[in-house]
Design a protein around this nucleic acid. Structure first.
Lengths: 339, 339
DNA sequence: TTGAAAGCGCTAACAA
DNA sequence: TTGTTAGCGCTTTCAA
């Protein structure tokens, strides 16, 4: 293991100068900087991150806390965050907070707090006030993605707006019997996501003067299977008692609906228009119209915010406070109502 | 930040004893151990991982290198590894090696080698001989998951065996016109996975005395869409020219085949049996028979191997050299051939 | 079984 | 702009 003093000797300078030259902090003359870099390269020197961290207090490491990894949204946020961190010279340490209670406390105590991370990104995870307070006390920046954490800056799309946009798209196409598949309040621990999307749906209907039909609002799992079952029940009735369109709160549910409609002999979009939310990778295959959100961008943005906080005035991610983007993507699952 | 000396004072012992008591290494009398633990708890002491690492040379951190994260297999392996590492008191640092060339070198130089990890798990990633050699030179244990890396212990299911089992299942049901959807050699950079599965298919046919029909072996993307297109082309012909069964090398492809068959008006399993590989989360919904593999178990096993190597004789994961398990799961997509 | 003390390899005052 | 030097907080010989 070649150390800093070896490089210093090789370059004919002090270790301090090597440190400054290689880290970019502090003033070093261009010529010595070159010498040092050459020496480091020649010797194959790389700083010991532990020694550096111990001396400086910086870990160059961000903790990312997720409830799951094997879901479209989470893995994409993580991927976006990882790529961005790499560019900033940071590592990403992953913590799975699937289990509750003890496991969760353990993660907090022995990992996050063990000075292993400079900051934390919490993805769709409701941190307790205590957990937030402890991070705060340790002066660890924290940013949430995918759902509001009380008292913490959180990146999320405007769920109400997303739902309104989707519903407006259907209204615009002439639909008025529009069903909504979403979570119920019970399942709404995911940050009122489902509640907000239902609200957006209701608000769009209301604005259009379309009366809300409670029977057309169905709670179900946010999965393909959940969407299938809900849609199947909703659609298995005579044409005049059926909705002409469905707004599903996620693409997976929407795809489930498509499959249910097919099984009932309905043709999309002739007999039924369907729109989802996400722009999941399967959406394209199924020709699903959807409101795209961009989880990789959300992960990236979260990192940029933290970098701003960790290195004030260095990176200029001006406007990071902008809301997260979303966008209507029309494919072939929605069409003008003919009647 | 409460440090070790504060705990030492509180417990009336030396810092050395605190270190020993808390780490479990070295002999400490039960009574002092209790005292120390009480003091640490009372003060809310947690070791500084950097100081500990610098002094001991151990990072308590494993690097996991993946090509993607948003794919069923990868995210599940990572999740399995993470949970297991947590239990061993280790962190998991995630490296995405999506990009090639420069980005890849950068990861290796500045992250993996910067003494940040004690060992590396490479998931379905072909490391170059040079990369392997450098890790070896640094004495970093390395284990692969999901595909053989030359000269490195790698956990993987027996792809030939898996394919043979799937094919035998179809043969057992009386099928002889069995098509195979898999990768072609071009796409076979994923460790001959597709080649091996094709070989298993061929070997099962051969053993059953069923002649191989090259026209029934179709190369395609390992995706739902790839499977759909391939199956569509394969099935769009008169019944007597059609295969009666398909063995797809992945569940996603198999599900694509199911959808293609449906679109062509075929009824599964009456007109066509389909079997996949993986036991992907969607397999159940589609009633897909499959050969299940267990990526979480593979991640877990990889960690156990590394722990054995890092702490010889401490953990007894006897038999970690056993092959990775797989298992036939019959659902409703396969049935006896009636003719 | 315990304590004293010498590092681990680097960074950041401070001084020159 | 560069060098000197005192830590960063812990682990681990070595000695008792």
């Amino acid at each position: 293991m070649v150390g800093i003093d070896e490089v210093a000797r090789h370059a004919g300078v002090s270790t301090a100068t090597v440190s400054r030259a290689l880290s970019g902090k502090g003033h070093v003359s261009p010529s010595t900087k070159l010498k040092v870099e050459a020496a480091a390269l020649a010797l194959g020197y790389v700083v010991s991150s532990t020694a550096s961290s111990l001396a400086s207090g910086r870990m160059k490491n961000i903790g990312v806390v997720v409830p799951f990894l094997n879901r479209w949204f989470f893995s994409n946020v993580v991927e976006g965050a990882q790529k961005t961190l790499l560019r900033h010279g940071y590592d990403l340490t992953l913590y799975n907070l699937t289990g509750g209670g003890e496991e969760r406390r353990s993660v907090f105590e022995h990992f996050l707090l063990r000075q292993r991370v400079d900051a934390v990104i919490a993805i769709s995870l409701e941190l307790t006030a205590d957990e937030v307070a402890r991070l705060h006390a340790l002066n660890k920046p924290l940013v949430g993605v995918g759902g509001p954490i009380p008292g913490v800056r959180t990146l999320t799309i405007d769920d109400v707006g997303v739902a309104r946009l989707a519903t407006e798209h259907l209204l615009f196409l002439g639909h008025t019997r529009i069903a909504h598949l979403g979570g119920n309040e019970d399942v709404d621990r995911n940050f009122h996501l489902s509640t907000n999307r239902r609200r957006g749906y209701e608000s769009a209907l209301h604005a259009a003067g379309v009366p809300l039909e409670p029977a057309l609002v169905v709670a179900c799992d946010f999965t393909l299977s959940g969407g299938y079952q809900a849609a199947r029940a909703l659609l298995d009735r005579p044409a005049d008692a059926r909705p002409t369109a469905i707004f599903a709160a996620s693409d997976e549910m929407a795809i489930g609906s498509i499959l249910a409609a097919r099984d009932l002999g309905l043709v999309i979009p002739r007999d039924l228009s369907i729109i989802g939310v996400d722009d999941h990778e399967l959406a394209d295959f199924f020709g699903l119209s959807t409101i795209a959100q961009f989880p990789q961008v959300q992960g990236k943005r979260a990192v940029e915010i933290l970098m701003d906080e960790l290195h004030p005035g260095v990176h200029d991610h001006a406007g990071w406070n902008t809301p997260m983007p979303f966008e209507l993507i029309t494919r072939v699952s929605t069409a003008r109502l003919v009647s």
